[in-house]
Write a protein that binds this DNA or RNA. Sequence first.
DNA 1: TTGAAAGCGCTAACAC
DNA 2: GTGTTAGCGCTTTCAA
Lengths: 335, 335
Amino acid sequence: MSNKRRKPTMNDVARLAGVNRVTASVALNGATNARTQVSEETRQRILDAARELGYAPNRVALALRANRTNIIGLYSGSTAFNALGPFGSAILRGLQEGCRIHGQDLLLFSSFGRDTERAMQTLLNGSIDGLIALPSPNDPVIDRLADSYLSVVTIANEHARMPSLIVEESGGPHLIAQYLAEKGHRHILYCGDVMRHTSAAHNQQAFVEAAAGLGLQVDLARSEWKGSLRPEETALLLRKPGDHPTAVVCWSDTYAYRLIDQLRVQGIHIPQDVGIVGFDTGQSDFHPIYNLTTVRAPWQEVAMIAIDILMATTAGQEVARKTTFPVELVIGNTV
Amino acid sequence: MSNKRRKPTMNDVARLAGVNRVTASVALNGATNARTQVSEETRQRILDAARELGYAPNRVALALRANRTNIIGLYSGSTAFNALGPFGSAILRGLQEGCRIHGQDLLLFSSFGRDTERAMQTLLNGSIDGLIALPSPNDPVIDRLADSYLSVVTIANEHARMPSLIVEESGGPHLIAQYLAEKGHRHILYCGDVMRHTSAAHNQQAFVEAAAGLGLQVDLARSEWKGSLRPEETALLLRKPGDHPTAVVCWSDTYAYRLIDQLRVQGIHIPQDVGIVGFDTGQSDFHPIYNLTTVRAPWQEVAMIAIDILMATTAGQEVARKTTFPVELVIGNTV
DNA sequence: TTGAAAGCGCTAACAC
DNA sequence: GTGTTAGCGCTTTCAA
């Protein structure tokens, strides 16, 4: 299980071909701008030798010489990157696609814990050409990176001194209200977040205002995080047609899924009896059952463009400090 | 947006402290085995200089010198690594944890497409110390890697000449049958895979045999991939108590979720009216609604141990060519 | 057309 | 206690 030989070097190739190191270098790299030229005959010999040895240019040596690794790092705060959720997996997919386009690879650092110094040392040790930073509120590392020589682009987190890509969530509630109005709904139940995340609170208020502007009646329910609709709210939905909300807007997709399940158990049909709308899912193929109508942040696209911007900064170009993306209404069949 | 200075080098530190390069090196590295010793006073001066400049040792130079990058690569065949599914995300999480333990980082290569040569060149260019290979049937790259100097460990894919970690699925059907028998079920509906994947077929047969051994009656249903139970099968579940299967075993978790949904729409309660058992989900928090009873392959643990094994081989130790993991019965509340 | 020298940042081995 | 030398694999610059 271990027949591991030494990795062949350019010297090995040159020796086998009977030429000097640099002749081999020039031949293998197709004579970039060096004044050195190689005859077709020796060139062939060198190529053959390389193939025979299974030579591959040493990326570490190249990186040392060029002061450039062609690797992009991912920083997700004190914890390891989490691809378990729709956000993380969409981001990862987008980053990979962006890297592919720009010929970069992606490095996932092991988690740093809360050790700021260690994180700085690791991020700044030259292993990467640039860094994508995912949201990690109040992380001192981010601020210190802004002062460093490393190019950093932040996603979903605006920073005054770094190019930032953010999604403008506030358009979502309006999109939903408008869509429901178009579908003929006049009476809506809004399930807000009982924990009152600020973004959730903003969304709720924005929805209420948008709905008011469209002449829709809105009832508010306070959903527990792990919980479900309270009996009196469920009863509201069970009243006779014409007298109850015809659609429920949920503050998150997760809650929407849970609600659909709860309502089905109680014999309520979706979307015939009542429509359901979610909010803010990333792309994933984990939940193929429901085709939920929701508002989505285009995280995959955001991540792809983050790489574009990062490469532009490392190339010395000026880039926008802030790029904003709108959310999209995704029309499913639950409303 | 671009105040990027030059990365400080050890020379800079030494110059600022007024000492020689290697004195700085020794001081900063805490005198490993070099006979060089540094007085406490100069040592402090050097440390201060390093801090002042924000010095971090250049990982690329270290890698060149040590012929070791402390980076582990991930190979997932011709396509980019896919973290969208439960398998991928569990694997990624396990790899990250394993890397953390061993002080390694994880490199995600951009996809190679079908270009075997390019893949070989990239994987063997010295950027990584070892490689984790995910299943990619009939991939010539895997075979050629076996002949290379690079240490490779394969997951979920047995290879004759590499340490391989595989999960023994065949224990699953038996676990399920036994559990159902213990819970008092005597009549089971088995929803097999109409597409007849070989593994699905094996599981079905194994379940039928295990159930027979336990004296259970088993009916078979052929579920469509995108579909659901056929009317006559649903009718079976709607018959009066005592006369119908009390539990349904599904060939996959995805199908189980879909089935639960379908049955709820028809007013059948889970698990009161009928129990549901799935098969083979990875860990994820994408689906927090149901707490499905299922059989799970411990991919996260497998990935963690894959790193252990990989590190052992790169350290020159002998390791098992094949490590087998049993599936686990995960008891939820759907049966 | 080919070879020699220098240097990217770092450290092990050996002087002094 | 501190400095010198050499070399990891590679490319660029210049000399033969």
